[in-house]
Every structure is written in C-alpha cells, then in structure tokens.
Design a protein around this nucleic acid. Structure first.
Lengths: 98, 98
DNA sequence: GTGGGTAGTCAAAAAAATCTGACTTATTGT
DNA sequence: ACAATAAGTCAGATTTTTTTGACTACCCAC
C-alpha cells in the first residue's frame, strides 16, 4: 500500500480508522488507560488488536505510554497535547450525529 | 460484524473510512462528481472501489446521485446538506495537521 | 454498423485487517 | 514457594476490504 496522501485531512482520518481506535480514544479522554483494563472495558476486542491500536495511536502522537514507577508499578496511556486538540473535532462530530 | 456502537462519533468516522472516501469527499466539496471523471482524477483507484464508495456515501446521506437529463445525459454526485455540514470538521482537521 | 464515451455490475483473486490461542517476562500477594 | 495479575509477543487462521478483468447497456458520431 503506497500512500499518495493527496488529501490533508486524510492522515488524521486514517489515524482514527480501525475497529477500536475511536473507542480507545474516547476512553482516553475520560481517564488514563491501562492495557488489561481496556481489554475488559471494550467487549469484543482482543489483546493483539488493542496492542496494535495502542502502538499506532502512540506512533501518531495521540497517546503517550508512561511507566508509573510507583506502588503497583504499571503502564499508562495518556492523551498528548495533540490528542487533546482532537477533542473539539469529536465534539463537533457528535453534534452532527443526532 | 455486529456493530455495538458505543462511541457516538464512531458512525461518522466510519462513514469516511475506507481507502477512497476522504478523497472523494474532498473532490465533492470542489464540484459535482462524475464517475469516469473521478476514475481519472483519483489515480490508483478502480471502478469497483469507487462505485462501492459512492454507493456508501450516498447511503450515508453525504452525497446525492442526480441524473442530468440534458445535453450529454449524465449522472452527477453532489454533496447533500448533511455532507456540507461536515466541511467545517474537515477544515478543523486540516488546521491540526501541519 | 463500428468505434468511443459514460456508468456501471459480477465473480474471483489478492491484499489488508482482525482474531485466536499459546507463550513470555516481570511483579505482586499469600 | 506458588498463584495471580499486568503487559504484552508470535504464528497462523479467519474475515473484511480492495483490486482485477471481463462483461453489459445505453447513447452519440462518423
């Protein structure tokens, strides 16, 4: 698949395409994400797909992976500034869908 | 594929997922579309995929198919009001991608 | 009546995305 | 020490999406 990328918004759109990304993004807006948690929250999903989606969202700079070095020592995914900048777009979209 | 549809913006997002839809939409903003024209404009695409994408965009209510009963008797696809309502969302997205 | 354009459809193949189940490594609780 | 939890990876299978090539039907011009 060679990307010719003629449409400027296309990359952003592609960022959130895929079966689980929109849902993951929505949950990330609410609070930091944790892997096994997500797996339980998003019914019908699976490890592999979530791992791939998280990695891609990270590569796209919408989420950042953070190792919390405290108490139960775990990993969190948080929205980046770039990710937060997308929130109004989503709100706009939600406004359109009645 | 059963749609559980937990995320409200997800349907809208799905509307424009697919390899050619964003590009088709962008061209539709500029002017009415004609099939064989589109096929020439969007290099790398093919009849079948465009036909499918156009049909879906029509079903989703973003484009409307019109038979022009004049001179060279042809078919046009135009943005609907719902389609036009998406333009600001795209502009916002383009603003974010630098 | 032959060639070219428009607007497609259909079946099959190829490519991409997603899912499954087994396995890993590290940490924590009892 | 043993089991459980967290956060994954990997190979292979399945499913979905996209592409290919052949074919249709209608008009128009020469």
């Amino acid at each position: 698949m060679e990307e010719t990328e003629t449409c400027p918004a296309q990359r952003l759109l592609k960022m959130l395409s895929g079966k689980w990304k929109a849902e993951i993004f929505r949950l990330a807006v609410e609070s930091p994400l944790r892997f096994n948690n997500l797996l339980r929250q998003i019914q019908g999903s699976n490890k592999q797909s979530l791992a791939t989606a998280l990695k891609e969202l990270e590569e796209e700079g919408l989420l950042e992976k953070i190792t919390i070095k405290l108490k139960p020592l775990h990993i969190e995914y948080n929205l980046t500034e770039k990710g937060k900048a997308l929130i109004p777009v989503f709100q706009h979209l939600e406004g359109l869908s009645q």
